[in-house]
């Protein structure tokens, strides 16, 4: 193995560790939005509360779609480790579509709320709601862009060690967003309807 390759391998292991640290900082970012939401969840200023706004079956559908996408993403990484390029491509394709569907549903919910007069200007509660869920949505968007780029790279260059490490990080990111969504589902929607 050439020196450049050894150096690059070391660099890749550092990159993975660095990515974990980045995910930690991202958790703190989300924690700040969660804390804000917890403070403002009853500050409806006479406007509607979560109980009247949220439809649990709808959110459950979103959740199931996102969880399935996480599952297919996990399968894709397993196939990537086994070097099955075509399976990787169609599994990530599936993940991408599921992610896109999730994003579409979320935007549908947002626009529905907005056009019924319950936009982010309505109350502190709705500001916190749109920001927390929207931050998650922006992350999903970033993940989808990343996924599209990675798929085109896998298609052209194959499952090189470089691409494999990037795919690993992408899947970490995707699972991380899944976990965040579980918290959103619980804290925002379930507790919102329960109270």
């Amino acid at each position: 193995m050439s020196r450049v390759e050894t150096a690059r391998q070391e660099a890749e292991s550092k990159t993975l560790f660095g990515f974990w640290v980045y995910l930690m900082t991202d958790s703190v970012l989300f924690a700040s939005f969660f804390a804000t939401f917890a403070v403002l969840r009853n500050s409806t200023y006479g406007g509607p509360s979560g109980e009247t706004l949220f439809s649990l079956p709808f959110v459950l559908a979103e959740t199931l779609i996102l969880l399935t996408s996480s599952f297919s993403c996990g399968l894709a990484i397993l196939s990537a480790r086994q070097g099955q390029k075509n399976r990787v491509l169609w599994l990530f394709g599936l993940t991408f579509l599921l992610g896109l569907a999730f994003l579409g549903l979320e935007l549908h919910e947002f626009s529905h709320l907005y056009y019924e007069g319950n936009g982010w200007r309505r109350s502190g509660f709705l500001s916190a709601f749109f920001s927390l869920v929207g931050t998650h949505g922006l992350h999903i968007t970033a993940g989808l862009i990343w996924m599209a780029v990675m798929m085109s790279k896998v298609r052209s260059a194959g499952l090189t060690p470089f691409n494999l490490k990037r795919l690993t990080m992408l899947s970490l990111f995707w699972h991380f967003l899944d976990i965040i969504w579980i918290f959103i589902f619980t804290v925002v929607y379930l507790l919102g309807v329960a109270s």
Binding site: D26, L29, S32, R121, S123
Partner: peptide, 30 residues
């Protein structure tokens, strides 16, 4: 600590540009 700053500045910017109510003294802001 810095992610908290990023989040807080974002919220203040959202208040100022999109008219949200995180920290305003009306509409339930705090």
């Amino acid at each position: 600590a810095f992610p908290i700053l990023t989040a807080t500045l974002t919220m203040l910017a959202l208040d100022r540009t999109l008219g949200m109510h995180f920290f305003t003294s009306y509409y339930g802001g705090n």
